[in-house]
Design a binder for these strands. Structure first.
Lengths: 167, 167
DNA sequence: AAAACTGATTGCAAAATGCAAGTGCTATAA
DNA sequence: TTATAGCACTTGCATTTTGCAATCAGTTTT
């Protein structure tokens, strides 16, 4: 336990790292939206995150070991963000948070469909998703029999969006 | 979805309710520490929560339907707080958060033992715990075969405290 | 009567948030 | 070549939140 922490309780320590309005939103967007650049995260933010908050959170998440930042070869200033293993290990937490939100809060269907699929899939699906994230973000090899998770989540989202929109 | 929300995503909505430094700490203390009065929550807070923050969060959690507040017959001013079903349904989320904190952050053993037991017990233990919380906070009857969960968590905590303290 | 308890509230400074404009470098389009 | 767009921030400012510690006024206990 480091000296700045208010206690060594795991929940408290997790909240000292992630207990704010925006950090898990940033992780969500990288994880589920595959947004890897600052402009993508800023411009495509469903919640309209402020530029200074996004910059601040990205910096903090890198400092705390939840993200890594690398240069993108396509532009001298462009930064590329990857999730680390601790961030990937947040999948079950985010799945539970999504399930809880779906049940107890007034969600919209197109934004809730991914949470529904994760809840229905349960821990085996979360493990598959984490395996896929390790591949995409850490360069770990995928098993031969891997069934894509993120593509399935995204397809369900897009189908729901099309469903909500009259032709 | 109500008009103040930044989006209808379940994760976002959960974070609009609970995405701050202190709300889940308050719920944790009521849930695991069985602290049901303001002074208990304030005086026994491992993290030293500030009085105005505690008062503010209790009020907000009541307003959002996660806590109920009733008068305590022993003192005209004394308030008694109970978890609601949505708060009890946060057990898996808190269990995951604790497990994540134990694995990725520098926790102290006596404060991490409960998280360890919850992780080892998995969903069956969480269900038992939620059943017990429904009894304690909502007055729902306990099954005859119920094995106490909170008492076991507390005993493990106290054993760990005694273990860390030389005689 | 004095002290302790009750759930707050208050005064203040520091920190964080949110909006929108601005910065200086890099890449692309005209 | 010049103008425009893209890049990840940064900045100025007002508002809100946090955190510390003292205070409040009613209630109960000593």
């Amino acid at each position: 336990m480091n000296d700045d922490a208010r206690s060594g309780c795991p929940i408290n320590l997790a909240l000292e790292t992630l207990g704010d309005r925006w950090s898990l939103i940033v992780i969500r967007d990288i994880m589920f939206g595959n947004r890897r650049h600052y402009r993508e995260l800023l411009g495509q933010s469903e919640e309209g995150i402020a530029s200074n908050i996004l910059a601040d959170r990205l910096k903090k998440l890198v400092a705390k070991g939840l993200l890594t930042r690398t240069d993108d070869p396509s532009h001298k200033q462009k930064a590329f963000y990857n999730l680390t293993e601790p961030a990937i290990a947040l999948v079950p937490l985010l799945a539970h948070m999504g399930a809880w939100g779906r049940r107890h809060l007034p969600t919209t269907p197109e934004l809730a469909i991914r949470a529904q699929l994760l809840e229905e899939g349960g821990p085996p699906l979360w493990e598959d998703f984490m395996t896929e994230l390790r591949h995409a973000h850490l360069g770990v090899a995928l098993p031969a029999a891997h069934v894509p998770v993120l593509a399935r989540l995204t397809a369900a989202y897009e189908a729901e969006v099309a469903r909500q929109r009259p032709a």
